[in-house]
Nucleic acid binder design. Structure first.
Lengths: 221, 221
DNA sequence: CCAAAAGTGTTAAAGTTACACCCATGG
DNA sequence: CCATGGGTGTAACTTTAACACTTTTGG
């Protein structure tokens, strides 16, 4: 009779965070040089081991702050990655998170840490390339039925900024008139009464997201 | 200066599985009496500790087979639950899974284990009530844009069976003509050429799901 | 012939798509 | 006055929603 394998009593539970932000209307992800002997020369998502005293969401926040000085405007759990050899050193089960950051340029990140356009990311350490793919898919999907975009824009923004965000992240183009009709008809945003200044063309009206959470519409058919 | 807390070196990583199945067109969930000193008298989802040699998905399959003799037709990861006191005995991080089972009546489950209509479930052990809620929400959402329903129906089924499945799980009613038009227009299913037998009314045509995965339509606006 | 469920079409309303020009501002 | 991006309406088409009767079978 075969002996049953042992329960995994000493699992390392980690979190990894895919932090997205917009720089010049282009989606960037926060990356760091990994600090292990393997995967030499590769970049990795920001991640680390959870403490006894915190949930994975709390761990994600803490690790982001400690390792990258980033304090995201939004965070949610993405998916747990548990392939046996996903980390070549130990058995590590990692809970991946998706985070969004509004003002990347206000942050002084540690040396080596950087924001990379997602289209320019080549292969990352561990299974982080897969995590990034899952995160991009999730962000794209959620743009369609939530107001998650608000965590990538300033408190006040123009409808053109909002449209450009959608076009950039979804890699499509959208008709300006139809986009504005839809967004306004759904009452996702409201005018602040203010307008742009310091532009050398007609200043656009500034909008804000309406406060109550709105997570059940459908922007694209 | 305050000492930093210790990394969690001895986390227990568990899986819990929400197994859904249809019995008499009603959604049921697989439950077992828990076997810990706490939560006396409460039912719990099927769950257990992962092995060193398996991913969480593999663990979910194994634990289901061992503890409930169930071999599901579909399984996916749902969400990871990591609140510090979610298990009163130890720090346990649990990766919840959603599973679907086609033929519950073919299975002889162990004594105590049972399928309970989801509407009849009261409070479960641990955070399993929350897991069940998340699972129901996920299943409902996925009915709208995937062919996940196929894992709850026999290989051949009538359009009425399919519609009843939707109505039952979504707790709505649907117009028969509109439902059939939509399902057929999307080419989600095709006629097998066979018909019902042994019914004392006009026998319905039997359909099967078209093979290729279809995960990007929208059934309900 | 009766009971039971299967199967089928049309119309009005709503929503979506495609498309082009004038407006306001700063320099 | 020019360059730049802001802002706006309509018509064709597609999709959705509402609605009731005839058909086929077994008993």
């Amino acid at each position: 009779m075969k002996r049953a394998p042992l329960p995994l009593r000493f699992a390392v539970v980690a979190v990894d965070v895919v932090v997205f932000t917009l720089i010049d209307d282009v989606l960037h992800v926060l990356l760091q040089p990994h600090n292990s002997e393997y995967y030499k020369g590769k970049l990795a998502l920001v991640g680390g081991i959870i403490y006894e005293s915190e949930s994975t969401d709390e761990a994600a926040q803490r690790i982001l702050a400690q390792k990258s000085h980033v304090s995201p405007d939004y965070i949610e759990q993405l998916q747990t990655f548990s392939a046996i050899n996903r980390d070549k050193r130990n058995r590590v089960v990692s809970v991946a998170h998706l985070a969004l950051l509004r003002n990347p340029l206000d942050i002084v990140v540690p040396a080596g840490t950087l924001f990379v356009p997602v289209t320019a990311v080549s292969s990352l350490a561990y299974d982080h390339t897969e995590m990034l793919q899952v995160a991009i898919g999730r962000l794209q999907a959620k743009l369609g039925y939530t107001t998650i975009a608000k965590y990538l824009l300033p408190a006040q923004f123009t409808l053109t900024q909002l449209q450009t965000l959608y076009e950039s992240i979804l890699a499509t183009t959208i008709d300006k008139r139809n986009f504005r009709k839809k967004i306004l008809a759904l009452r996702l945003v409201e005018e602040t009464g203010e307008r742009q200044s310091g532009v050398q063309n007609r200043p656009a009206s500034l909008y804000r997201f309406v406060h109550q959470q709105q997570n059940d519409f459908s922007l694209f058919v």
